[in-house]
Amino acid sequence: MNIEIKDLRFTYPTGLEAVSGISLTLEAGEQVAIVGQNGAGKTTLVRHFNGLLQPTSGSVKIGDWDTKKTSVAKLASRVGYVFQNPDEQLFSRDVLTEVTFGPRNLGYSKEKTDGLVERALALTELSDKTETNPYDLSPTWRKMVALASIIAMDTPIVIFDEPTTGQDAVNVARIANVIAELQKEGKTVITITHDIDFCAENFERVVALSKGQVLLDGPAREILGQEEILAQTYVEPPQLTRLGKRLRLKETVRNQEEFLNAIARRA
């Protein structure tokens, strides 16, 4: 299911124009990272994908649905959105109820819901915590509950807003694993992130925003090496990309594997 964004502009009631003419097509099954400084319009852009915000002008289509003509509740069956702060969405007395909330809202059968919930809990390594109150869990695990509660909705498109903020290395690895699994299932994953190393290691396509416009868009390998242009939106290339540049490697490298291969070829 494609996301078609055409000449999107959005102005907040305060008069601030947060998105100033963005056109993009995100293909089904793509893994896209959206990067850029605070205020570049990242969150404003993705909140159009499930209709939380309506374009001031231009249009956003999710498959054949125009977000202007579709309710948020209906769009929720196509677009799942994990908010940055899990505490802004968790309310149930146990993890199982929390994760069941979304699929139940979408009106799936009991059988289908149970299956989806079980799979989401397994994917987020929460299967042994189903009866725990989310507020008795550490913030790290609350984040996983928030992830599970969206994954269980089984939407073809999943959006993550800053999934790694405040997470330690172990949990970042868990989140990366969830994203990889979603990719295997053919889902579109769109992630807003400040964590450029996480971006380099888990995403094939990168869209860099600046001042409400697309600054760069393309395969991660091409985008992440463009140090000067990225600096315009206060993004530094990933650590290993910078190291590769410093060592004057011929190609842009993104992760450990690419770096070591390039070093081996050089030697």
Binding site: D168, A169, P238, Q239, L243, Q256, L260
Partner: peptide, 8 residues
């Protein structure tokens, strides 16, 4: 968590 430079 460790630096990518260290792990690489």
């Amino acid at each position: 968590g460790i630096s990518r430079y260290t792990s690489t």
